[in-house]
């Protein structure tokens, strides 16, 4: 029998230090005001000056071009992930955040080989597998990656097409995330993995239906491990688009999501990403346990994405309106 008080006390003691740190650190996460200042900054140098007083200051002090910004922000993100391990979070939680980059790197390697393109600058050092390992043969990668690579290479050594690489690697990555979340024994992480699968499936189903792709294609593309039942989606797939979206929005997984927003291509990503934002808001409100730490690291991930968009956008010569619209795509 699980006694809630025992678990609460255990979580309060085990994660207490990390949660305490997070309570201070989350006050330093950028609000709208900082983003506005970064958008309004007339130059990259001014943006750097604004960031110099923040956690990003030391990572970007020597950055002068897009590559150096990327490298600086990658180091910042690496440190945020390191915090997960320092915060006593179980190993699978750390893996959950890092393993996605291994799959992204694998995708980059396979695509580069399929297209005969150079790999330079495509590999990020945020995964579990060292960057150097991706430069060698795919068979020498850890088994969970080598297996995926092997499935995409035929007997003659030819690599599958880009679309097949995307689909296969994504399926494998999500399956790994679901399994990693399950092994973490963290309910919060299991819920998050399930939600990520649901969001990906809902997005894939709506896009496939809008393009009137055959139902068989959809069934192959949907990911396992979510709460959105694939059979139920297949049943409503034959309906006209508007009715299909209404039916999808009425499913328990997407309850509360506006059907009109799901049908609008420009609002689809925002409304689905908001489901994850809502989850993170709930996680931040949890007092004892790993949830606030997970929510903090994910908030930092989103922040890094926004900062990268603004800095590299400014370096590329984008004006304020263009930067603001790109930011809005990230945070509506």
């Amino acid at each position: 029998m699980r006694v809630p008080l025992f678990k609460t006390v255990y979580d309060a003691v085990y994660y207490g230090f990390a949660v305490g740190k997070v309570r201070v650190l989350e006050t330093r996460i950028f609000g709208g005001g900082t983003y506005e200042r970064l958008v309004d900054a007339p130059s990259f140098a001014e943006q750097k000056r604004i960031l110099s007083d923040t956690v990003y200051g030391r990572y970007l002090e020597n950055a002068e071009n897009a590559d150096e910004v990327e490298a600086g922000l990658e180091t910042a993100l690496d440190d945020f992930y390191r915090f997960l391990a320092e915060a006593n979070l179980p190993e699978p939680v750390v893996r959950f955040f890092r393993v996605r980059y291994d799959y992204a790197n694998l995708r980059a390697v396979l695509k580069a080989r399929a297209l005969g393109a150079p790999l330079e600058g495509m590999i990020v050092g945020l995964g579990i597998v060292p960057v150097a390992a991706f430069e060698g043969p795919a068979e020498r990668l850890p088994a969970y990656l080598a297996k995926v690579a092997a499935a995409l290479v035929d007997e003659d050594g030819r690599i599958a097409g880009v679309e097949a690489i995307d689909a296969t690697v994504e399926q494998a990555a999500f399956a790994d995330l679901v399994e990693t979340a399950r092994s973490s024994k963290s309910r919060a992480l299991r819920d998050l993995a399930r939600l990520m699968v649901d969001v990906a499936n809902a997005r894939a189903a709506i896009r496939a239906r809008r393009r009137s792709r055959p139902a068989s294609d959809l069934a192959e593309g949907l990911l396992k491990g979510g709460t959105l039942r694939i059979r139920d989606v297949e049943k409503i797939y034959a309906l006209p688009f508007a009715e299909f979206v209404d039916a999808l929005a009425s499913m328990p997984t997407l309850r509360g999501v506006d059907a009109d927003a799901l049908a609008d291509p420009s609002a689809l990503d925002v409304v689905l990403d908001n489901m994850i934002s809502q989850f993170l808001r709930r996680a931040r409100a949890v007092q004892f346990g790993p949830e606030p730490v997970i929510a903090y690291v994910m908030a930092r991930e989103a922040e890094v994405t926004a900062v990268r968009t603004l800095l590299i956008g400014r370096l590329a010569g984008l004006d304020r309106d263009a930067l603001r619209s790109r930011l809005r795509e990230l945070y509506v």
Partner: peptide, 8 residues
Amino acid sequence: SAIAGIVS
């Protein structure tokens, strides 16, 4: 535990 984290 929580307070030590905040003070750190």
